[in-house]
Amino acid sequence: MSETIIQLEGINFFYNGFQAIDGVSLSIGPGVYGLLGPNGAGKTTLMKVILGHLRPAAGKGRILGSDLDAGLTEVRRCIGYMPESHCLIPGMDAVTLTSYMGELSGMPRQEAIKRAHEVLYYVGLEESRYRMTDTYSSGMKQRLKLALALVHDPELMILDEPTSGMDPGGREEMLQLIVDIAAKGRMNMIISSHILADIEKTCARVLIMNHGRIVSEQQSLDFAGGDTSIFEVGIKGEPGLFLEQLQGIHAETDRRGLLRLHLPPDFPPMSLFRLALDTGVQIRHFRPSRLTLEDAFVTAIGESHAR
């Protein structure tokens, strides 16, 4: 599982002089990747570069083994793209539209029709598959877009804000679908979102973007509670001396006034109590914490602003 799905080096892209992508280099292997960033970070632009819709001003790369410079029209046969904006072809029911998209990707017509029924059933549109798509609700359109991206069973799926406009129930089911597809379909995915929880729930690795740059790359497993070296500590008394003694240990104060201490592996957590005793403070709150994606996101964005 060491093959590279997407390899980009020094990609720059400008919109009328505005640099939307600034020297992005990344390597994406098999699995589910999250692309996280605030609005305007360049996520959608990067996805369009990957799809070959936008030609970068500089840089090189390979998508599913094809060179970026050579044009990616043929590569799109192996990519399923779910755009953020609502898009459909008027005057068609869901079965016709889905099979039509399958045909355009190179499926034989009869196979495309059969497969359209399957994927519409899978995404939960079985009841309304013969309804005109222009009468669909927002949530149904999102499901339909997922079906359109899935119909040809692509090697790589690119999902741009997949839960946008969905109610909580629909959103939960959409995330379940994504996890299920990734697991059973052996499919590689890039999911762009600004909803941290969606990314946390679905992605194995997370790329954080800001100002057109990749500012951080994180293992999502880091956020799943595996890291036990972070502790929340509440102190009563003057913490100055206590903190002085913690030299070399990263400490930060959260919104509730609690200290978050990132202890190195050779630092036994219990020795904090000894230190508190020695420096004359009381530890009133002590519990292991975990690094959340929100923490990583805020830190990465903060650091990128500071640069």
């Binding site: 799809l51 819709h53 029209t73 043929e74 590569v75 799109r76 046969r77 990519i79 793209y81 755009p83 904006s85 609502h86 898009c87 459909l88 072809i89 008027p90 005057g91 998209m101 355009l104 990707s105 190179g106 222009d134 359109l148």
Partner: peptide, 15 residues
């Protein structure tokens, strides 16, 4: 109609 319903991107996301 494709412009109105934003569907050109559906076509161009195919080969």
């Amino acid at each position: 109609a494709d412009l109105k319903f934003n569907s050109i991107q559906l076509y161009l996301s195919r080969p």
